[in-house]
Design a protein around this nucleic acid. Structure first.
Lengths: 157, 157
DNA sequence: TTGAAATGGTCAAAGAAAGTCAGAGTTTTG
DNA sequence: CAAAACTCTGACTTTCTTTGACCATTTCAA
């Protein structure tokens, strides 16, 4: 298993349902996992970014720390956030998938719904002779259209 | 016997009834069969594509892997049938919507799933500067990919 | 007050896989 | 048999991970 994955799991296990927040020491954690301290930053950047639904805060110097907080927004608000902040007029498959995973983790869509959306923006689905630029534009429009359709349905539930 | 056929058999034998999923390392497999790593991609493309009822997923970099999942769900047969019979290499929005409604009526997808699929193939989602012919080709691929992905998972919720 | 110690942050480069694609062989087919 | 279709390979590309050298901030003791 990847080091990054281990560190990710470790941190997530520290966060329970009632305590969506964890504080740790970068050097201690690096020591524990026998890796370079900057590895911790890598994990934070790739697995605990706002895109993943987390915010981090830290302090240097004596008694320094890193605090990670899981952000939970109400469903409609989260979808709006994604719509406005994360999806522009163009989005790559990787970015789109990340958003879909986040929607799933926050319980806003089911496994099946997430699978369908991921399929819709996949390279497989868009394997037609157009430029990458156009494909990314289509991805953005699809995400937008799908999320809008979804939030419309959620309203009258 | 052809190399590709051997690799195909090998992978299929790794998938048992209960475990319709296999994870492998491209380089290791290539090493085992004494061939170029890209040969594995060829086998995946020609024998484990969504059209064949499989979906694949992979990751690059350290600890990378390739995962292959076989479509097993009951009802999958029916979906695959529709996939090959009703969806060619091109489909109009009207036809796609008709198909989605039918899927819904047969209880093969939920309301939400149907809404997402319809959104994905809508004119709005595809409002980019490409010809209608290309759009219909994209619609066909999307329907195909979405339905394959869907039939690859268990019924939940 | 001020410099040393204690932390955490950044970034570039190396390493580890997997992906792509054109072209050379092979096999199948009309 | 010639053309089309299918296999395979190798060079090159892209993505993801890990490390290390150097930087920035905060605390604390002299």
């Amino acid at each position: 298993m990847r080091l990054s994955d281990s560190i990710e799991s470790f941190i997530k296990e520290m966060m329970t349902q009632e305590e969506p927040e964890v504080e740790l020491k970068r050097n201690e954690l690096a020591e524990y996992f026998n890796c370079a301290p900057s590895q911790i930053n890598y994990v934070l950047a790739t697995r605990f970014s706002p895109d993943h639904g987390y915010v981090t805060e830290s302090r240097r110097g004596g008694g320094g720390y890193i605090r990670i907080v899981r952000v939970v927004r109400p469903g409609a608000q989260q979808i709006l956030y994604l719509l406005n902040e994360r999806i522009g007029s163009s989005i790559t498959e990787t970015e789109a998938v990340r958003l879909i995973i986040q929607l799933r983790e926050q319980g806003l869509v089911t496994e099946n719904e997430a699978a369908i959306m991921a399929a819709a923006v996949s390279a497989q689905a868009l394997a037609v002779p157009v430029t990458e630029g156009i494909k990314d534009a289509i991805r953005a429009r699809e995400m937008r259209t799908m999320l809008t359709a979804l939030s419309a349905r959620k309203r009258d539930e």
